[in-house]
């Protein structure tokens, strides 16, 4: 399932390296510092969640990593290579599924499009798209248009498109923020399943604390803007997760309390500008 990595020279470092990342948006009054200093590594095959209070520059960080936004300072490396534009081995699932899928194409053609642009032959394209749609339980929806589907199904199409592309790294920007709670739980399990099946690296941005703990092997907590890493937590929950049982584990409650406290602290710091005693 994985993209062919044989051609890439052996590299022992992390899949993704972020060091001293800084992003200042130019404004009329001299610039807004969205990200001050971010440093973290994501090893290959990890599912890492990034949480932070609203306005923490989560989307900015993701866009910088995706090569959609130039950084002001710092190191951004994928597989040891500097990120200067959208990397070939990376896919992104955006929050706004309704605007990320092309309404003038059927679901099938949407999933196939990145493969077509990459020069994948037609027969293989078809097969990979069908396989990916099956993986997200939408095998029958290929001939429909995205707007004929519910929000949750549309986001699954966007995930299928990313899966068919066979990236090494998948970035997800609050992908489930706009769907209802039940759909959201299903989609979370879908992400876990795909992550296990494909063995890819996933960076999942969310503002939902429960979601970050349930999904991630690790939770990186961001502070409010100007953003730094507030905390980096290893999620030591069993690998097989279940919406009911995992969420009722005492360890789950501990972790979510911990993340919650960190975010409250981040908000308080943003308000007072001082670091309160722990």
């Amino acid at each position: 399932m994985r993209a062919d990595t044989k051609s890439i020279p052996a590299f022992d470092g992390p899949m993704l390296q972020v060091a001293g990342l800084r992003k200042i948006y130019p404004t009329a009054t001299g610039g807004f510092e969205a990200i001050r200093n971010l440093t973290f590594d994501v090893p290959a095959g990890q599912l890492a969640c990034i949480v932070g209070p609203s306005g923490a520059g989560k989307t900015t960080l993701l866009k910088c990593i995706a090569g959609l936004l130039p950084r002001t300072e710092g190191v951004l490396e994928l597989h040891g290579k500097d990120i200067t534009g959208p990397p070939k081995t990376m896919a992104v699932v955006f929050q706004e599924y309704g605007r990320s899928l092309f309404p003038w194409m059927t679901v099938e053609r949407n999933v196939e499009l990145p493969l077509k642009a990459a020069g994948v032959p037609k027969a293989e394209r078809r097969a990979r798209a069908a396989e990916a749609l099956e993986q997200v339980d939408l095998a029958d929806a290929g001939g429909k248009y995205p707007w004929q589907l519910s929000g949750g199904m549309q986001q699954r199409v966007a995930i299928a498109r990313a899966v068919a592309y066979r990236p090494e790294v998948l970035l997800m920007d609050e992908p489930f923020a706009a769907v209802d709670a039940q759909t959201r739980a299903d989609l979370e399990d879908l992400v876990r399943r795909i992550w296990k099946e494909l063995g890819i690296t996933i960076l999942f941005v969310t503002h939902d604390i429960d979601e970050s703990v349930y999904l991630g092997e690790r939770v990186i907590v961001l502070s409010a803007a100007p953003t730094v890493v507030q905390d980096d937590i290893l999620v030591d929950l069993p690998a097989d997760r279940d919406q009911l049982r995992t969420r009722s584990l005492p360890r789950f409650a501990e972790l979510r309390t911990h993340v919650f406290e960190e975010i409250q602290r981040a908000k308080a710091e943003a308000k007072t500008g001082a670091i309160p005693a722990r």
Partner: peptide, 15 residues
């Protein structure tokens, strides 16, 4: 043209 659609094209290197 929608910004998210443009970003989508950019990330999938549709040029």
């Amino acid at each position: 043209t929608d910004e998210v659609q443009r970003d989508t094209c950019a990330t999938y290197r549709i040029r």
